[in-house]
Design a protein around this nucleic acid. Structure first.
Lengths: 129, 129
DNA sequence: ATGGGTGCAAATCCTTTGCATCTGC
DNA sequence: GCAGATGCAAAGGATTTGCACCCAT
């Protein structure tokens, strides 16, 4: 993992992310950054976001290029490889109390439907490298 | 939610999903189905997968069209609206014991890095409708 | 001058849509 | 015969890449 430069573009992106209330999409980041640096291009924003993600300086949510489908509709949890994106089942039932879930749902303002636990890390294959 | 037809194409798709070991992508489903029904088109497979998803007959994983970014890299959990896709923070810390997590990671064959809890449901806005 | 960073546009990938045709009832 | 289902190709949206240029070192 290479050291990261911190030039004006990068700082502008970080700035937007740090002052954001919610979780902006790349396009939203781009729009915001453009107010400060009108000449910046989308590609640069994407490049910077990716690098920040690799550095662990920002969290990237929902990076899953393709949808996956599963005929087993009962709840089950997933392990995601941060390297290759593999999506694995977690064959261990992790129990959360209904009270905790209800409280979380209420706090988030959502009518609870289901839940899922995801663990992230490197899968056996990628961990070798 | 309308009643679902169960013609040959739909049955073929269900069949592939039910006999799948992992979580196939739409393209993978398409490839497999094509072995049985060579004339089927991608669009049909996508249409069927979407309908099955709506019916709750299959789970759709990772349906998030855009990436979102977050400068707060400490762990926090998310609530996802199944209707509009809104991604909200859960302002309640949900604690999982390290042993449970370690066991899950081991079972999935992954070197644990982080984890996240996601709850799904309809957000305040969508729940009205 | 040199190498990384950049903007632009074109390309790519996954998914959806329009439309004319075909099917089953 | 009709409504819904289908295949094809084209469109769409998000992200990446190729490439020439530019800037700071």
């Amino acid at each position: 993992m290479e050291k990261m430069r911190l030039n004006a573009n990068v700082r502008a992106v970080l700035d937007v992310l740090q002052s954001a209330e919610s979780h902006p999409t790349a396009q939203e980041v781009y729009e915001s950054v453009r107010k400060v640096r009108p000449s910046i291009g989308v590609a640069t924003v994407y490049r910077i976001l990716n690098q920040l993600g690799e550095q662990g300086m920002v969290k990237v949510l929902g990076r899953e290029s393709e949808c996956r489908y599963d005929a087993r509709t009962q709840r089950h949890d997933h392990a995601v490889c941060t390297e290759c994106g593999a999506l694995l089942d977690i064959p261990v039932e992790i129990t959360l109390s209904n009270e905790v879930l209800a409280r979380a749902a209420q706090a988030a303002g959502i009518r609870l439907d289901s839940h899922e636990i995801r663990i992230y890390g490197r899968c056996l294959n990628c961990d070798k490298g």
